[in-house]
Amino acid sequence: MEAVHAENLGKTYPGGTEALRDVSFDVGKGEVFCLLGRNGAGKTTLLRILATQLRPSAGHASVLGFDVVDEPKRIRERIAVVPQEARPQMLLSAWDHIYTFCLIRGMSRGDARSRTKQIMDELGLWEHKDKVTADLSGGLRQRVIIGMALTVDPEAVFLDEPSIGLDPLGRRSVWAMIRRLTKAGVTVLLTTHYMDEAEVLADRLMIIDKGRVAYAGSAEDAKNATGAKMRVIVEAVAPGDANGREVLTPASNEEIIGIVERSLREGRKVTFKPPSLEDAFIQLVGGSIEEEDS
């Protein structure tokens, strides 16, 4: 049985905006599934439907075997959600947030205390436990929100841009937390704008564009699907050169040789890199950006 199953899922908001259309996919148990897409592509809408926070207007979806519309209670007992742009209450401490959420989730005071300590240790928050969150960095505040979501042991976790605004160390601590969850068999669905994050974490990913599935599969297959053998970066040797920087994705050996010859003539530096997920992403959704621009 899949942890998440969606079939022809669609969402049109009451105002008439169509946010999702015919979205179908499966996520296996213990898998990290990454949703990529531009702002407003429909990632958050999809995540909110699966987290039972938003009603779909078409299709079906189930989480852990339970229907999101007919059996939301069964799902809610088994999931944890980190909403996009959630913020802690500035006048309360990290401890206040996580401890009170443990109590709200029905734990005794003793259990809530030990669970709070455990979560704070895991997320590197213990040394900041009594500081009001107004005095914490953005990364630590985000970890407080994640800590609130993880008060119970979930079977599936929905993370909507969990590492947005975090410094590299903060992001890595979130990644480590996600790896710990998957090691314990937890299914993770996350949205992100960071391609490196998707490459590092995702077992599989799905690119959504204008509410439709533009790609679903592994990051490696997405990169191979670009057809490009490599990425060629051509840039000026001297800083401030007006010729600027070009990132090219040649499809044939002849094209590569042509780029190298031209760059040598112009005295510019050439760097070769394998195609990235970002290249694949831009190729997949770039067409729609150009359509909008024209």
């Binding site: 987290a51 926070q53 209670k73 959600v81 909403p83 959420f101 989730r105 029905g106 979501a149």
Partner: peptide, 9 residues
Amino acid sequence: QDMLVASPV
């Protein structure tokens, strides 16, 4: 509220 909606509360 979103966090609580997605919980048994």
